[in-house]
Design a protein around this nucleic acid. Structure first.
Lengths: 152, 152
DNA sequence: CCTCCTGATGAAAATGATTTTCAATAAGAA
DNA sequence: TTCTTATTGAAAATCATTTTCATCAGGAGG
């Protein structure tokens, strides 16, 4: 097995193939960009960074890749309040976390403090709600809105 | 005081004036539509319903009114997964509730079951997070995603 | 290593929700 | 009633995202 700087892409190759899809240079670039950032990038920002790796990639491919990864559950699409979507890898080193969203600058801050208490309650809620509403819960979104330190 | 079928609008008149804004027929129509629905309407749907009350109203006014109400904290803008925004009155009869969002049909279901436990935890989180991140928290968004009974 | 099927791609056009522009209108304080 | 200025509708502009379509390239099977 060759030395791959992009171990996640290696794993994702299999996931793609398993779904009848292919791993391509463009997709690898998108995945690499997502793995190397700590921010919550928009499609356009991912496009800029992916171009450094693969100058021929088109914005369309960024959108198509994000959509596939999103359907595969490998990427979460976030809504930061400005009109464009923002994306983060579901299985990055970050672990389970939620978001603080600044209403003024739209910055998204990750937090995982007290996450255990939160997750415990969420699991309970999920169980109760899915029974009562006959709703198959597959994920959740927890965010606090407000004004961040820089904008105060 | 005249008999007003639209008591919330009455209250909101004052809020508008207090901000240096005016209460107009168009705004009243938007508020009335929001008060009379149980659903989570898009701007366009609000437009259709508001036209019944005030046939001359334009879509632009709907957007402008929603934006003002939103900034005043009287309306919450929701993201249901399809690309258009959906809106709900913050102070309707519904009380504090959160959402179940169907990933398939984008329907949004309100729930207020076990809300007290949730709110208790959220308040605690808010206090701890705002201190740690020096972040002035003004609201939260809690949603569970999944597939609703009708789509299963 | 070669072939072929089919998924993937980029560029350009299309879409569709939301915003802006602008001249005309109307709230509401004085 | 007057006057200031917020508000309005229509049309044009934005802008993120999607679709179209002709071309290209993974990768399974030989």
């Amino acid at each position: 097995m060759k030395n791959c700087e992009c171990p996640g892409a290696e794993k994702l190759h299999g996931r793609f193939r398993g779904c009848g899809y292919r791993m391509t240079a463009g997709r690898e670039a998108v995945i690499k960009v997502l793995q190397e950032t700590q921010e919550h990038l928009s499609a356009d920002e991912i496009f800029s960074k992916a171009r450094v790796i693969n100058p021929d990639i088109g914005l369309t491919t960024i959108y198509r890749t994000l959509e596939k990864l999103s359907m595969m559950g490998e990427v979460h699409k976030l809504d930061s309040g400005d009109k464009r979507g923002r994306f983060e890898l579901a299985n990055s080193g970050k672990g389970h976390h939620h978001h603080l969203v600044c209403s003024r600058c739209n910055r998204i801050i990750d937090y995982d403090d007290f996450i255990d208490d939160e997750v415990r309650l969420l699991k309970e809620m999920e169980k109760k709600l899915s029974k009562k509403y006959n709703f198959a819960i597959s994920g959740h979104l927890i965010q606090f809105y407000g004004v961040c330190d820089k904008c105060k």
